[in-house]
Design a protein around this nucleic acid. Structure first.
Lengths: 329, 329
DNA sequence: CTGAAAGCGCTTACAG
DNA sequence: CTGAAAGCGCTTACAG
């Protein structure tokens, strides 16, 4: 490995000068700079980031903590994060908790030990230990997807989006709307979306039979099973529409309905959330909500960058969304 | 930040001893170790990875270079890589070239300056500058998806898979098989798959009309457009089957066919490669090839780890695949 | 405009 | 079993 000392020697200057030339800090004579840059080019020298980071306490690396690496949502968000970060010369250090809460905390500490300049967490739950850990790290931090008290958070408009979806179904004439949710340990997806559904139904004086409400685990298969249970348990009083809180579960529900000979949307309307790639190409195409995940990632990166640069910035930020009405309703 | 010196002081030993206790290297008395570990726990001390890496020349980080962050294939591979790497205490530093060849080279050098212990490249092309750069980095390196001369490479069986797919179509009675390929700058996808198609057709004495052969750019839309052109240009002598080299393009082709009122597979059979999530849920479900991308990622990580540990390992490795026959043929 | 020196937080021979 | 010392490759006051 060629080091700054090698460059200094070859250029006949001190390493102090080389450092200044490389970082455009302080005065360096034109000719010294030229000589140095020429040698840098020739040798392909790249400064050791470890040494730099040890010295400056900055690394040019942002840690990203994901719940799952292989979901469309995560991928899109990371894509947006990476896009804006790369432009500023930052790289992403990626970690995947596999939905394990312990790992969230473990990774925050790990990333800190790696001197990352900031951390972005795609949050799926809220708990005291997590909040505590974040507060104690003392490095720029941003959460996406959940509102973490005292932490800069970018949140989707879950309540509004779910309200819109429910209302749309009701306006289309559906009075019996089923619901496939997820574990309430996830406040945004598990609580907000369900609350919105219940509130809208109640507001329109529609009764919710508890047999119409089921819970999945985000997977396509779980949507399939939930739909099956709902239909079985509500034999005498079946719903005419089903609202699944994610596209994948909605697609699973559609699979079961199709298998059972239901016409969609004639016999049963189906809606999801997420604007997954598949939602567009499945038939009938799925009505869903686009959360603009990539934009969320971009926004997250920008807000984190502001924190890093100590510019002030909002602590909370609501993301926007868009209803996509398609053939499944 | 608490450092090793703080721990040493609190434990009443030298930092040398703390280091030994932490790394289980050399002798440390039981009682010293206990005292140290207790303090480490209490303080939540984590050693600075920058300092460690500067000193040891190892970072515990593997660089991964992707052509695109938001494709299912990349995601699955990264997932497999991460899974096996995380178990060994390694993290992933992620970079995305956005299909820019210059960036591939730039990122290799960047990752080196960050002292990554190894690099995995999801390769989409082969060129001399790239090969040169890799040879000069001198750090463990592994390529997936293309056979890079002199570089440890994990390659998919593109030729065999495409042959199987073409033969299957021919055995089903198709004599007029169209083909949607990609830019030959990608040897594996652009050349091997097309060569296999042409060879199999020729071997069965079937003629290929050049109007049946078109090129897309991996996107769904391009598959749609290619299908449109093929149908338009071969007006008098239309194919009865189409082989698209990726699922996304196959799905685009299906979209166009459906729009035009073609029954699939009765009027036109369609096959793709990739076993995308969508291939299963689109209707009719798509016949495709599963490349076991996640396993490829796992295998890649394992082979790279062997290189890092200086255990010997094959330079070339062929991945396996599986035909998934579904309703589109 | 330039350089000598200190120091970031670790690990690793070396000596005891 | 333990510690003092050197050194990894940088940057940054400080002095000139």
């Amino acid at each position: 490995m060629t080091t700054i000392n090698d460059i200094a020697e070859l250029a006949g200057v001190s390493r102090t000068t080389v450092s200044r030339a490389l970082n455009n800090s302080g005065y360096v004579s034109e000719e010294a700079r030229d000589r140095i840059m020429k040698i840098v080019d020739e040798t392909g020298y790249m400064p050791s980031q470890s040494a730099k980071s040890l010295r400056t306490k900055r690394s040019g690396v942002i840690g990203v903590i994901l719940p799952r690496l292989s979901t469309e949502t995560s991928t899109r968000v990371v894509n947006g994060i990476n896009e804006t970060l790369a432009k500023e010369g930052f790289q992403i250090l990626l970690t995947d908790t596999e939905l394990d809460k312990k790992k969230e905390i473990e990774y925050i500490r790990l990333l800190k030990s790696r001197h990352v300049d900031g951390i972005i967490l795609l949050a799926t739950n809220v708990n005291d230990e997590l909040i505590d850990t974040i507060h104690h790290t003392g490095i720029p931090f941003l959460a996406i997807g959940q509102d973490l008290p005292g932490v800069t958070s970018l949140v989707y408009e879950d309540y509004h989006a779910a309200s819109d979806l429910t209302n749309m179904l009701i306006h289309k004439g559906h009075e019996k709307v089923a619901f496939i949710g997820v574990d309430p340990a996830d406040p945004s997806v598990g609580q907000q979306r369900e609350q919105a559904y219940r509130d809208m139904m109640t507001r329109k004086n529609l009764t919710i039979r508890e047999e119409w409400v089921d819970e999945g685990d985000f997977s396509i298969e779980s949507g399939y099973e939930s739909m099956k249970r709902i239909l079985k348990n509500s034999r005498d009083d079946k719903p005419t529409a089903v609202f699944a809180v994610t596209d994948r579960m909605a697609i699973g529900a559609m699979e079961y309905l199709k298998e059972q000979g239901y016409a969609i949307p004639a016999d049963m309307a189906v809606v999801g959330i997420g604007a997954s790639n598949m939602s567009k190409y499945i038939s009938p195409s799925l009505t869903t909500v686009d959360y603009y995940n990539k934009d969320a990632g971009r926004k997250a990166a920008k807000m984190l960058l502001r924190q890093i640069k100590k510019e002030n910035s909002d602590e909370k930020f609501d993301l926007t969304y868009r209803l996509i009405i398609r053939d499944s309703v």
